[in-house]
Simulated assay, not measured.
Amino acid sequence: MTPPFAAPCRPLVLTFAGSDPSGGAGLQADLMAISSIGCHPLSVTTALTVQDTVGVVGIMPVESEWVEDQARALLEDMPVAAFKIGLLGSIDNVVVIAGILADYPGIPLVLDPVLASGRGDELADKEMIAGLRDLLLPLTTILTPNTFEVRRLSAADDDDQAGDPSLGECAQRLLLLGCEYVLVTGTHANTARVVNSLYGQPGGLLRSDTWDRLPGSYHGSGCTLASALAAHLARGWSVDESVCAAQEYTWQSLAAGFRPGMGQYIPDRFFQWRHYDGTPDG
């Protein structure tokens, strides 16, 4: 029975990610960011982690059969408007998720290639990286690697002999593997300001946005950006509009960040509600 004053359904965003008990990154970060932008988050847990604001202590992948069952149950019940992928946990999960997403080719997919924690803890091996390249990139609307991730994902056997490729060359390699857009984030680069660059076919560099570099180190900035992108795409925004709005939202979340533990700062994904009354912009 429909409640007499039921609100219309919000756009649904399904995120595949690992659980972060600290609430700084992973599944918990995705849920907060997607909700804050006015969408309803659906979630598939791909891994359980032991971590805090300092780093990752351990990771236990969820069995791929459970990952598939979680996703299929949701997708058979509700119309998803966008997908977001974060930490996958195992090559088996990469294979299963690629098979699921192949059944929904018209729905935008934002892929955040989580290869390591902010401290440098390894979260993806060579087999998983190969799986990302071969199985998920051809299904991806927007890939959101940082400068470390874009080089690792696009690495070729002869790179050492030819010299390090530019970030633009790395992005072009990934575009040739099938993804539509690559947004390279500059948070890990040694630059005075953060430069985020969007690449796409056939023109290469489409836009470049510069942001003030905030002091401190943040836990979950990449999850926040990718989830914000997926939420805006789910609301029907264009890729260019979504990229612009997601960057603004992420920067504001970081600027309002707080340090609850002994490690990194955590973005405040609900900064809007603490600064003024009303609905979130974008």
Rank of each mutant, 00 (worst) to 15 (best):
A25S: 12
A130D: 11
G23Y: 13
A155W: 13
R213H: 08
V182W: 04
D212W: 04
P145H: 08
S197C: 11
D158F: 11
K84W: 07
W237C: 14
D125V: 12
A47Y: 00
R207M: 15
E241M: 14
D52Y: 01
V80H: 11
I97A: 03
G99M: 05
L225C: 03
G178S: 09
C179E: 01
Q51A: 02
G178H: 04
L101P: 08
G89E: 02
S242E: 06
S242L: 01
H40M: 13
Q51T: 11
G120P: 04
P165L: 09
A29S: 10
A124P: 05
T15D: 01
G257R: 08
T15N: 04
S242C: 03
L88R: 00
I34H: 03
G200W: 09
D77V: 13
A189M: 07
L254C: 06
D160M: 14
L42H: 14
L135Q: 13
Q272G: 00
D103A: 15
G106Y: 07
N190S: 11
I37E: 07
Q161Y: 10
L176H: 15
L48A: 09
F270N: 06
A255L: 11
G23E: 06
A192Q: 12
M262I: 06
L74Y: 15
H232I: 04
L87R: 05
R269I: 01
T15E: 01
P145W: 13
C170K: 05
G168E: 08
G261P: 03
V96L: 00
S19P: 00
P3D: 14
V80C: 12
W251I: 01
I85R: 11
L115M: 15
Y199S: 05
V110G: 10
G118R: 02
M1P: 13
T250M: 09
G18Q: 00
L87I: 07
E180N: 07
G204R: 11
C9D: 15
L177E: 07
C244T: 14
K126V: 10
A47H: 01
P11Y: 13
R173Q: 06
A189D: 13
P3Q: 10
P21E: 07
V56A: 08
Y199L: 01
P21Q: 05
G89I: 00
S166Y: 03
C244K: 12
M32Y: 08
P105W: 08
T279P: 03
C223W: 05
A155P: 05
L205T: 04
T210I: 14
E122Y: 01
G106E: 12
F16A: 03
P4Y: 13
F148K: 05
L48V: 08
G120Q: 04
L254Y: 02
T45H: 02
A25I: 01
I142Y: 09
L225T: 00
L48P: 01
R10D: 12
T2V: 14
P21D: 09
E68W: 09
M262L: 12
V57D: 13
G263S: 11
V195S: 15
F16I: 04
P105E: 08
S221C: 02
A228I: 05
D52V: 02
L206Y: 12
P11L: 11
G26F: 06
P21L: 07
E169V: 14
V194D: 11
D157T: 13
S154W: 04
L42Y: 09
Q161S: 12
A155D: 06
